[in-house]
Every structure is written in structure tokens, then in C-alpha cells.
Amino acid sequence: MEAAAAMDHHDQHESTGIDHRKLGMWVFLSSEFLFFGALITNYLLYQGQPGFARPYPAEIYDIPFTSFSSFALLMSSLTMVLAHNALARHDQHATRTWLLATAMLGSVFLGGQVFEFTEFVTVGGMKLTTNPAASAFYLLTGFHGFHVLLGVLMLLTLYGISRRQGELSEASGLNLELVGLYWHFVDIIWIVIFTVVYLLAGVPAGVG
């Protein structure tokens, strides 16, 4: 009866069978590739140019540390998907636990980034204004970090709603799925950044 009444009210339907918001999220994410692509392109252009004031980012990377924080972000995708799965099984308690775990892992990553930036500036002597490669590095990782921050806030909001209302309703279930999509996307962007910007980083000949 519910469904019939709703159809009657709205006489609207989804031509593709996909919920508006879900389709909208995927469409939005597809445009984010161009956003991060431009940032990575900047970095690739400048990291290999000789003659800048030093240090170049690649000279002062701390690969073990970044590997650790990257790993935290990667594993947060697991906890995110487990939260989603728990909600599908109507296990509200587990949903909350995994949401919180995801937010925590995201915060570990963010904390790592704050630490990394601080180290680079104070110990490594690389500021935003040092050279174009440094500018590109900070802009790229900074914007990624901003995306992670937004994700953590959304996760905490979902957690808060769940705590306050005692459960996540069916409508919120879709919200959780959307936040999950966003979260995984931020993760895959980091997978690319970790490889291209950190592991494959080079300094131009004659530097370092």
C-alpha cells in the first residue's frame, strides 16, 4: 500500500532504477578525477624540473611513515564497508562501531599528514613558498587531506545521528552508502597519490 500510495502521489519514478542521490554521487565522483588529475599533473610537471630552490619534496619523504598512514587509510575502507554491511544486516550496534573505527582510522591518517607537514616545514625546511614543486606537493596532499576531513565529519555525523536516535533509519542507510562511496573514492585517490607522488617520486638529475 505504501508503495502504491507513493507512486500515486509522485507519479515520478527513476528511469534508470538508480536512486537519485546515488546516481548523483557517482556522477560527482567521476568529475573528481579531473580535479585530482590536475593536482597530480601539477606535481608531476614541477617535481622533475631542475634549478629550483631546495629541498625538492622527494628529498625529504619519510616513506616508512607515509606507508603507515597510507595503510591506515586503506584499512579504513574495510571498516567502512563492514559498517555498510552491518547496517544491511540491521545490526545497529556493529554499524556504530565500524563507523567510529572508520572515523578513527581517517583521523590517524589526518594526524599523520599534520605531523608530516610539520616535519617537512620545520626539519626539512620545505615550505609552500620554497619552490613550485613544494607548492604543488602541498596543494595536492592538502586538498586530499581536506577531502578526508570532510569524510571524517560526515562519518561522525552519521555516528551522532545513530547514537541520538538509537538507530539509523532506512533513509539514513542510503546516506551511509553515499558517505561510503565518497570515502572509498578518497581512498583510491590516495592509492594513486601514494604510488605516483611518493614511491615513484624522482628528483631531477644533479639534485640530491
Binding site: L74, S77, L78, M80, V81, G180, L181, H184, F185, D187, I188, I191, V192, F194, T195, V196, L199, L200
Partner: peptide, 17 residues
């Protein structure tokens, strides 16, 4: 390294997403 990253990328997109 690029192949490995793509592999991880596809796994997260295909299964987790």
C-alpha cells in the same frame, strides 16, 4: 608499481564500492 596501484584501485572500486 603502477600496475600494483591499478590493481588496488580496481579492487576497491569493484568490491568495496
Amino acid at each position: 608499481l603502477i600496475i600494483l596501484a591499478l590493481f588496488k584501485f580496481v579492487i576497491v572500486v569493484g568490491w568495496y564500492m
